[in-house]
Structures are given as C-alpha cells and as structure tokens.
C-alpha cells in the first residue's frame, strides 16, 4: 500500500499542537529552498545558512499565528527574503562589500560548512553551468539592485508565479510584472557582450 506524505498544512497543524517531529519534517522538506533563496540573494554561504536557520526559528516561534491564508512556502519565502534584506542592510551599515565572487574560496569553518555548490546532474547542464556565461551572469546579478535580484530569483530560481511573488514581496502583480521586465532589461544590458 502506498503511503501518502502529509501535506505542509497537515504538518503545520501537527507542529502547532507541539509535534516537533512534524516541524522537523517541514524543515527537511524546505531547508534546501530556504538556503538557496538566501544564497542567491546574499551570495555568501555562511550568511545564507544563518538566514535560513533564522527563518526556521522565526517560523517555529510564529507557528501559532499561521492561519493558512497562504501556502507555507510563500510564508517561508517572505521570511527568508525579509531576513536577507536585513542582512543586506547589516552589511551596508558596516560598509561590507556586498558583491561576492564565485571564485572566492569557501570558508569551511569547522567542516560543517563544507557543502559545495550543487552540481546539476545532467552532464549537459554541468557543461552549461560551467560556462563563462553563467559565471558572468552570476557576477552581474550581484550588481543588480536588490529589488531586481529578488524578483529574478523568485521567478527563475524558485519558479514562483507572478501572483505568488506579489504575495511574498507584498506588492501588486502589475508591480511584479514590470519589475521583472526591468530587471531582465537591466541584466540584458549588463550582459550585452555575452549575448551578442
């Protein structure tokens, strides 16, 4: 007999009743998503993991207030994006260079941070990911305004629809549409040499 995995909503309800195992299942299910969104926005592994952890801590503390008015993933995205913004401001206040390079060595710390950039499994994709185009694109992304980076990550990395992005960013669908168009135009302008 095929076992049916509980939905996010069911897990949340269990977690709201104090079931930590259900919350752990939620974390297992969405940790990759949270870390990646944070990483795409911050381009710093350590900060991305910290932001993702903070996001789950906040989720845990706020479980009682979650009424299911939106999907759990939408809520999680909201939190991660907000925390990433806070981290950005924190960097900015301290004059830290926000732009990160993929070529920069990874700080492994005590070994727990030794995760590597995940390689796509498709050999063809591996080749593509390694191209100079993607490297340049990544660098140019970090130079985009934060708002542009957010919509592009939510759309192309997380593959959210415009309506969901609007909920995450608390703006209108029209704003999302125009912002994505402007972000791509800015990126196209920045990458015109590579695109030609």
């Amino acid at each position: 007999m095929e076992s049916v995995l509980p939905s996010d909503r069911e897990l949340i309800m269990q977690a709201q009743r104090g079931d930590d195992a259900a919350f752990e299942e939620l974390v297992q299910r969405h940790q990759r998503r949270a870390i990646n969104v944070a990483f795409q926005l911050l381009r710093n592994e350590e900060d991305a993991v910290e932001v993702a952890q903070d996001a789950f801590v906040r989720v845990y503390r706020s479980l009682g207030g979650f009424r299911g008015e939106c999907e759990f993933t939408t809520w999680l995205h909201q939190i991660v994006v907000n925390l990433a913004r806070n981290k950005h401001r924190w960097w900015w206040r301290r004059g830290r260079e926000v732009t990160m390079s993929l070529d920069a060595p990874v700080e492994a710390g005590d070994g727990e941070m030794s995760q590597q950039v995940a390689a796509p499994t498709d050999p063809a994709d591996v080749e593509l990911a390694k191209t100079e185009f993607v490297r340049t694109l990544e660098r140019k992304m970090t130079e985009l305004p934060r708002k542009f980076r957010e919509v592009l990550v939510l759309r192309n990395v997380e593959e959210l629809g415009y309506e969901e992005i609007a909920v995450v960013l608390r703006c209108s669908v029209g704003t999302v549409k125009s912002r994505i168009a402007r972000a791509r135009e800015a990126l196209r302008e920045a990458m015109k040499d590579e695109l030609s």
Partner: peptide
C-alpha cells in the same frame, strides 16, 4: 537565455548539520 542562465545559477546544498 538570461532566464535560463538565472535558473542555472549555482545552488547551495544544506549543510548536514543544518537540522
């Protein structure tokens, strides 16, 4: 091509001790 490139940006795997 740009959209495809953004979708292929390097991703980060969760550290084993994350949970």
């Amino acid at each position: 091509r740009l959209s495809d490139g953004v979708a292929r940006l390097p991703r980060l795997e969760p550290p084993p001790r994350f949970v």
